[in-house]
Write a protein that binds this DNA or RNA. Structure first.
Length: 312
DNA sequence: ATCCAGGATATCT
DNA sequence: AGATATCATGGA
């Protein structure tokens, strides 16, 4: 057991908000501690006052935690730059200390491919079952955890084994996951290369890989794992938030469709995403995540599962 | 039981 | 190109 304490000092952080808002799916809170993995190493974290307490099974460089939580971002400056109007200022005030997390691109990509048309608890359940069945077992403190499976492990998986984990779209989706795993394993899909590309180019390339990667999945992977903070993913919640706050600046027909609960067309996605990016600029993704968390909090979505098992 | 959820794609006009 | 039909699970 290795213990470490990070001095947050002036670095604003809400660990609860950051890990419970629905950007990342495999962290759970138990007895006041967040339990999860960073680079395959089991980690426990707890925020107490000005400090972040970190416990791990083996030594972890402080810089890895700092990178994971994007504590290298000057959050206050970013939010100040994003404060275009009083509406978004109020959202920032209601959702304090939320940070975008730096996820592993492979895990992030698979997570969002199978997130489509699913609720967050369902995504968590499916991911946990996939890790339990295909990921490496790790024991820590009498607890059994599972790493996220390597690409080769998914590539060589039996399709029905994946389907049995609860995929929303069955065998078709299992074949998608296997194909993506092959592309990653063969280096055809090169996350480091994508990270170096401009947002628009990386997004076009990701979408061109197909097999379950569309606009939304691309934007999530780019924002949460590939350093593209201008990405503005749009789901039903973000569309509701934007349609509510900025109804006067959007196509009235689009606002009506969002309010009526009808599904978003590809064109609607582009309208809202482009609007967000134009309004907020290089840190639009941060504004998006605050909007997402804000509407869900206000709708009374409960974010912390208390009784469900993480991964055994 | 019913309803909804961090959508993508094949198949039309 | 742009609209729409289809896919078909788990959790609240």
């Amino acid at each position: 057991m290795v213990k470490m304490q990070l001095d947050l000092a002036s670095r604003t952080l809400s660990l609860d908000g950051t890990l419970s808002c629905g950007q990342i799916f495999r962290w759970t809170k138990q007895d006041g501690w967040w339990l999860g993995m960073v680079d395959g190493v089991p980690i426990k974290m707890r925020q107490t006052g000005e400090h972040l307490e970190v416990e791990s099974s083996s030594p972890v460089a402080e810089s890895r935690i700092t990178r994971f939580l994007r504590l290298d971002d000057d959050l206050d400056s970013i939010l100040e730059e994003l404060s275009r109007d009083d509406l978004i200022r109020r959202v920032f005030a209601d959702v304090r200390g939320l940070r975008i997390v730096r996820q592993d691109p492979w895990e992030c990509l698979i997570s969002y491919i199978l997130s489509r048309n699913c609720s967050i608890p369902a995504i968590e359940g499916t991911l946990n079952r996939i890790c339990r069945r295909f990921g490496e077992r790790v024991e820590w403190g009498g607890r059994i955890l599972h790493r996220f499976p390597e690409p080769d492990s998914i590539f060589s998986a039996e399709p029905m084994g994946l389907v049995g984990c609860g995929l929303r779209y069955g065998r078709r989706q299992a074949l998608e996951l296997k194909e993506i795993a092959r592309l990653v394993s063969d280096g055809v899909m090169d996350f480091n290369a994508l990270r170096r590309m401009p947002y628009e180019d990386a997004r076009s390339m990701l979408i061109s890989f197909d097999h379950g990667i569309g606009r939304k999945v691309s934007d999530c992977v780019l924002l949460f794992s590939l350093e593209k903070l201008e990405a503005f993913p749009v789901d039903v919640w973000v569309s509701r938030a934007v349609a509510e706050l900025y109804q006067g600046r959007l196509n009235p027909e689009l606002v009506r469709r969002v309010r009526g609960g009808s599904r978003l067309t590809a064109k609607d996605y582009d309208s809202i995403s482009d609007f967000g990016r134009r309004l907020f600029g290089r840190y639009a993704g941060y504004a998006q995540e605050y909007l997402y968390h804000w509407v869900r909090l206000r709708a009374g979505v409960h974010l912390l599962q208390t009784s469900r098992q993480a991964s055994e």
